[in-house]
Simulated scan of single mutants.
Amino acid sequence: MEQQELKFSLAQRATKTQQLNTLVSWLKGKADWQSSSAITTALGLHSRTIRSLANQSDGLIISAQGTPGYKHITNCTIAELEMVMAKLDHATQELAKRVTAIRKRYHARHTA
């Protein structure tokens, strides 16, 4: 059973790598921001998959909450990159606050 799971995991990883390479190449050929619906129509990827691939792209696929979609880094202006980095920094700070609040409640619950 472990052998089958390993084979599935390797096949799944290869598929994700292929999807990532396809998405990166496709975006590189597009000068404008591409919405997830446009990517879904063109490449057949689910919006969650697109988001996951962007997170795994090692900075090649640019996106953040509040941007018009996804863009290859080579097609971004300096202003766009600075805007996305600021949005991601803000989101990181908000998540850190959330973790701190949860941690406080966790400790209060388990030390009482």
Rank of each mutant, 00 (worst) to 15 (best):
H46P: 07
H90T: 13
L60W: 14
K87R: 15
Q65N: 10
S47C: 02
V84G: 13
V24G: 02
T41F: 09
K71Q: 05
T100R: 11
I39Y: 05
S52V: 02
Q34T: 10
S47I: 00
R48L: 05
G29S: 14
V99S: 06
L27N: 05
A86S: 10
A96I: 09
Q93A: 11
G59R: 14
Q56W: 01
A79K: 12
D32K: 07
Q56S: 03
K28I: 01
A31Q: 15
L53E: 00
V24I: 15
T100C: 09
T40K: 12
A31K: 15
T92Y: 10
K87M: 12
E94W: 01
M83L: 15
H90S: 14
D32N: 14
T92Q: 09
K87C: 00
T92V: 05
H72S: 04
S63D: 05
I78W: 10
Q93K: 10
D58K: 11
M85N: 15
S63C: 11
A86C: 08
L27H: 03
I39M: 12
K87Y: 13
I39A: 06
E80Q: 15
T40M: 05
S63F: 08
T40H: 13
V24P: 06
S36K: 03
A42M: 06
A101R: 05
I50T: 06
Y70R: 04
R51I: 03
N55P: 07
V99L: 08
K87E: 13
D58I: 00
T92N: 11
S36W: 12
G66M: 13
L53N: 01
Q56K: 01
W26K: 06
A79N: 11
G59W: 13
D32I: 02
E94A: 06
C76N: 05
S47N: 10
K71M: 04
L81I: 09
R51E: 03
N75S: 06
Q93W: 04
S47D: 09
S35P: 04
G66L: 12
P68C: 12
Q93T: 04
M83P: 03
A31V: 15
M83H: 13
V84A: 08
N75A: 01
